[in-house]
């Protein structure tokens, strides 16, 4: 009978870092606090009128902190404290999800390699200012290319510890 040792490191012991981590050519940090809204409507004009902001028209485009994630879905990532009105009586939905996700930021020339280690998209071809929902290995994320070497990654709160540590595991080797 083969005896396999106890798992040396338990997932329970993973910690979500609080301070930025600087690696070779890549820096991992938390994004500034944000107000987050899930915005839904069949007709973008109805929604735009309610919230008083322009909405990007095509999936993957962003405009003024709002990304178009689906044909009837937008995701607003706005400065903390921004209040969007709750819709009533109109064919649209505005839901405050500020607490649902955390934002992690990867920046530097090595950021693309860190993200590509677990994200199956051809991120090198993703334009600056584009955003999309996708996965990092098994975890759903929203990737937002804020600049050539700066990627904002939205992840649901309870997956953030795993993702933070998965990034840390790759950072020393990603080139």
């Amino acid at each position: 009978m083969v005896e396999i040792a106890e798992i040396a490191v338990s997932a329970a012991e993973l910690k979500l870092g609080t301070e930025p981590v600087q690696g070779d050519g890549v820096r991992l940090s938390h994004a500034d606090p944000k107000a987050r809204y899930s915005l839904r409507a069949r007709d973008a004009k109805v929604l735009a009128a309610v919230i008083g902001r322009a909405l990007p028209g095509k999936i993957g485009d962003t405009d003024g902190g709002i990304a178009c994630l689906g044909p009837d879905e937008w995701y607003a990532l706005l400065p903390a404290g921004t209040d969007l009105p709750r819709v009533e009586g109109l064919p649209a939905s505005v839901v405050d999800v500020s607490s649902r996700a955390l934002g992690l930021v990867l920046e530097g020339p090595g950021a693309l390699a860190v993200l590509s280690s677990g994200c199956p998209l051809d991120l090198a071809k993703m334009g600056v200012g584009r955003a999309t929902r996708t996965v990092f290995e098994t975890v759903e994320i929203v990737v937002w290319r804020e600049a050539e070497d700066r990627w904002h990654v939205e992840v649901w709160r309870s997956f953030a510890t795993w993702l933070w540590n998965a990034f840390l595991a790759v950072m020393p080797h990603a080139k």
Partner: peptide, 14 residues
């Protein structure tokens, strides 16, 4: 040939 449904669950959701 098979007609089938897929959902872009971790993308646009459709």
């Amino acid at each position: 040939r098979h007609h089938e449904r897929w959902r872009h669950s971790h993308g646009c959701g459709r």
